[in-house]
């Protein structure tokens, strides 16, 4: 078992090694201008420098902080609201189109108005992230609650569940697979929205780092930023969100693909 996991991890890394080798060989071979695409060495150097003088850490920290604050705020509002609205089939079917409409707009489309309302900076960007997560999670929570079969809710009531027990024992766990899926989708949009918003509306963060580097044709910083963005999202998605989703959906046999 252990050996199997190790070998599959190695196989997962192999293509990246090939890619890196191609990178180190091909770029000098074709004599590519570093203003178009950087050498691997200069990217590594840029990374080390960024860590040493703390700017890279600062950018990463700022981006993650914004995501965390926006997401937590959104979840605190979205989940209770989604459950409250999902309990009544009439209310949930009435509100569904509304939330679908706003999920479509989630994230990036709010950047112009957010920067006008909050000015450039932390507020506008957090607002964009809040938006991306809030509408999608509310919609999914509402959907999740309304897909709990009525007999299951009736069963809990006839076994003596009060309002609070109904919430914690039935509605929340019943909607959880949808909520997790919603968080995963919402964070996906939020992450993109974050990068886009940071390019426009701030002076710190990964998106800003990329966009400023473009002004000076510092491709090594751009590529470094892209790798950092990719790795961070991959870690977040594959190590946290995807396993959570699998755990709830598969174990409970609630196959709900969206």
């Amino acid at each position: 078992m252990m050996q199997h996991r190790l070998s599959s991890a190695l196989w997962f890394c192999a293509p990246f090694v090939v890619l890196l080798v191609l990178w180190t060989v091909l770029i000098p071979y074709f004599n590519v201008n570093p203003r178009l695409f950087p050498h691997l060495g200069s990217v590594i150097q840029a990374g080390l420098e960024g860590i040493k003088d703390g700017t890279l850490i600062q950018h990463i920290g700022a981006s993650l902080m914004r995501v965390a604050v926006g997401t937590v705020l959104a979840l605190l509002v979205a989940i209770p609201l989604g459950i409250a609205m999902g309990v009544s089939p009439v209310v949930s079917s009435f509100l569904t189109p509304l939330f679908r409409f706003f999920s479509v707009l989630a994230g990036i489309a709010w950047i112009p108005i957010a920067t006008l309302w909050f000015g450039y900076g932390f507020g506008a960007i957090t607002f964009v992230i809040f938006n991306a997560v809030f509408f999608i999670v509310t919609y999914n929570t509402l959907l999740g609650v309304s897909t709990i079969p009525l007999p299951v809710r009736n069963a809990a009531a006839s076994l003596g569940a009060g309002k609070w027990a109904m919430l914690t024992e039935v509605l929340l766990p019943g909607a959880l697979p949808n909520i997790v899926t919603g968080i995963r989708t919402g964070l996906g949009f939020a992450w993109r929205g974050l990068i886009a918003a940071e390019m426009i509306a701030t002076n710190v963060g990964l998106g800003y780092m990329l966009f400023v580097a473009r002004d000076f044709y510092k491709t090594e910083v751009i590529v470094l930023g892209m790798i950092v963005i990719g790795v961070l999202w991959l870690l977040l998605d594959r190590l946290l969100l995807a396993p959570l989703e699998r755990a709830t959906i598969e174990r409970w046999g609630m196959v709900q693909r969206s």
Partner: peptide, 26 residues
């Protein structure tokens, strides 16, 4: 699958918008 799947996951994770600065240069 062995050769491309990990790359697909990684490049998907980079996300479209992060490509903008370098694409503008190109």
């Amino acid at each position: 699958h062995t050769a491309l799947w990990p790359l697909l996951l990684f490049f998907q994770a980079i996300g479209d918008i992060a490509w903008l600065p370098i694409l503008v240069i190109w």
